[in-house]
Amino acid sequence: MNEEPMVEYPAHIEALMSDAREMFEPPAGAQEAVRLRLAKTLGPAMISQAAVPAATQGLSALWATLAALTVGVVIAWVALRRPAPTAHPATSPVASAQVSVPAPAVLSRPVVTPVVVPVVSPVQAIVPVNSQANTVATVAPRPLDTLAAEQAILDRARASVRRSEWDTALSALQLHARRFARGQLVAEREAMRVRALMASGRREEGQRVARSFVSRFAAHPLRSAVEAMAQ
């Protein structure tokens, strides 16, 4: 319960506030335009096809084709790399079994990463890949798990940026770059890197990263902000 004395609006201010309570209405077409961009960014799987404009239907087919191709390649890759059954007796028979990972019906990200993963025992799962001498496929992290890990590192970087601790922020961003060179939040990382570099006085480096950002992510919503920061 609030116990602070609350400021009340005088009548002339309250009259102004009543007008301000009216919502800003998006212009016609804005909802569909943003939906289309979301479908392109995230893939059409999370937006029901009924609600997606026809323009994205071709995109949907593209995603499906990519997914099918990826599954085929992964199955072939795993089959070729699978060791002979006698080579590693310790390997559980279950280890080479394969299961499909069911993707949530609506919230799955586009399936461009392998959807077929080998099942390994808990012990195998924690053994470093190198020690397995390429004989046991590792468990592929689920995209959303990877995303959460990426997000956690960028959150740390963002918190450092807010405190103007540029070196700490850049270290976190470097960590993200090492772990997720081809991550899903590369653009966000690079935008933050531009800001940290520029703010810490490393302007040339910041401008170089900004130029790289523009060439890699020409249509990204952060582009204009990155260009402004690099000026």
Binding site: M23, Q31, V34, R35, M46, I47, S48, A51, V106, L107
Partner: peptide, 11 residues
Amino acid sequence: NFDEAYTQGFA
């Protein structure tokens, strides 16, 4: 689901 949230929440 996300789509419904988008429809309900966009404006």
